[in-house]
């Protein structure tokens, strides 16, 4: 059994059109998913060049093998999982991903000054705190947070993408949330305090 087969279901119409050789459908697929894939890729490995190359490979291969591809129930699941597989073909990526405890710096994900100004001040405070806290997490935890809280995947799907079992996916999410809480210490403590006052 493969994870792709787990998600064989009602075929996605756009995917089916692409499989039949519709180039517009293919471009649409790319446009629908590329931002997500770039972001996800950068969570796994911070090297923009490697992420770009992997996405290029992924889409060129998709087009070339379109007639032999299976129908998929969740295109985003399929693409994210495939991208991860591609990224991990690089020995260096794997090493970095598994060895690193805390990422050193985040060259790509820095805000420009203008963006910061646009955001409301209050919102910015929390948002920036959360963001910085996430950036200090190990890559695996950042990855799992992206999959859960941004892409909205289930434990089951996360397990499928990361090639781990259901229980491990749950544990990893638990760990990531604990770590996040630790990072956010005061903010969350304050929050809990407020809740205690409520009851």
């Amino acid at each position: 059994m493969t994870d792709e087969e787990l998600y064989l279901y009602v075929p996605d119409p756009l995917w089916e059109r692409f499989k039949n050789g519709d180039r517009h459908a293919f471009a649409q697929l790319y446009n629908d998913h590329v931002d997500n894939l770039l972001l996800y890729g950068m969570k796994v490995i911070q090297k923009q060049q490697i992420v770009e190359d992997a996405i290029q490979d992924l889409f060129v291969e998709l087009w070339r093998s379109r007639e032999n591809l299976q129908s998929v129930r969740s295109v985003s699941f399929y693409l994210v999982k495939s991208l991860r597989y591609k990224l991990f073909r690089h020995e260096k990526t794997r090493m970095e991903y598994f060895m690193e405890d805390v990422p050193a710096h985040h060259p790509v994900l820095q805000d420009s000054a203008i963006e910061i100004k646009i955001l409301k001040e209050e919102e910015l405070l929390n948002q920036q705190k959360v963001r910085r806290a996430i950036q200090r997490l190990p890559r695996r935890q950042q990855e799992v947070i992206n999959l859960r809280f941004y892409q909205g995947f289930t434990n089951d799907q996360i397990a499928g993408i990361m090639d781990i079992n259901y229980q491990s996916a749950g544990n990893l999410i638990h760990k990531a949330i604990l770590a996040l809480r630790k990072q956010l210490g005061y903010a969350l403590l304050y929050l809990f305090f407020c809740i205690l006052l409520l009851f």
Binding site: L38, M42, V108, E115, I134, Y150
Partner: peptide, 10 residues
């Protein structure tokens, strides 16, 4: 929102 912000930056 934090993830989205990262996405926007990219």
């Amino acid at each position: 929102g934090s993830e989205k912000q990262d996405g926007e930056t990219l």
